[in-house]
Design a protein around this nucleic acid. Structure first.
Length: 204
DNA sequence: CCACGGATTGGCT
DNA sequence: GCCAATCCGTGGA
């Protein structure tokens, strides 16, 4: 088990860079959600970049609304949105103020609080045999496992509730770059990144 | 006010 | 592989 106490929290400067740089660099970092004395954490293994200035699939492409306004803030905030009448998705806002860019977290390898995540996802105290890698391999599943919802919209990631930790450097050859999933616009942009051969990636 | 569609998931064929 | 569930945000009237 990785000792999180030895790892430093990512600061504002990490987030305010270009969205695709941040997206790539988020791979291997550790996502943490503290709930009282309970800790949920995991390694980010799959992400997608969204950039409202040139990307029709980004929520910020048309205009600023109440829903997407946090994406126009400076990098380092959490953008949570609700979709398909059932799921929340969790994004890391990046770039300078008014950039309208964010990174969608699509895959996480669980570390701390796995039992709690199983309970959150399936209402069970133990993982069913056929659900081995079905815990956090998808954006909606991550939010359910990590107990992230509308109430976490706009949280500052340099605070103490939800934040990210530095971790070992990922080599370029371990990163797979492809097109994004589940969208109908700007489908050719190669802005999806994931860790090669990691079982917690949502789709090859 | 109302109609429409979605950065998904899970269950069934 | 296909498709329904489900409801909020958005935009047009």
């Amino acid at each position: 088990m990785i000792d999180l106490k030895k790892l430093s929290k990512l600061n504002k400067n990490f987030y305010i860079r270009d969205v695709n740089i941040v997206a790539k660099n988020l791979l291997g970092k550790i996502f943490v959600h503290n709930i009282g004395f309970k800790k949920l954490s995991g390694i980010i293994v799959e992400v997608e970049a969204y950039d409202g200035s040139i990307d029709k699939a980004a929520h910020t492409f048309i205009a600023k609304t109440k829903r997407n306004e946090i994406m126009f803030e400076q990098g380092g905030f959490l953008y949570v949105y609700f979709t398909y009448g059932a799921h929340f998705c969790c994004n890391i806002v990046t770039g300078r103020k008014d950039a309208g860019t964010a990174v969608l977290i699509r895959g996480i390898e669980p570390l701390d609080g796995i039992e709690k995540m199983i309970k959150n996802r399936f209402g069970l105290s133990e993982l069913p045999k056929n659900k081995k890698f079905n815990l956090t391999n998808g954006p909606g599943k991550i939010c359910q496992a990590f107990e992230i919802n509308k109430s976490h919209y706009g949280i500052n990631l340099t605070g103490n509730e939800i934040y990210l930790l530095e971790n070992k450097k990922i080599k370029d050859k371990e990163i797979v770059t492809t097109t994004r999933i589940g969208i109908k616009k700007s489908i050719d942009l190669p802005w999806r990144y994931y860790l090669k051969d990691n079982p917690h990636v949502s789709k090859k």
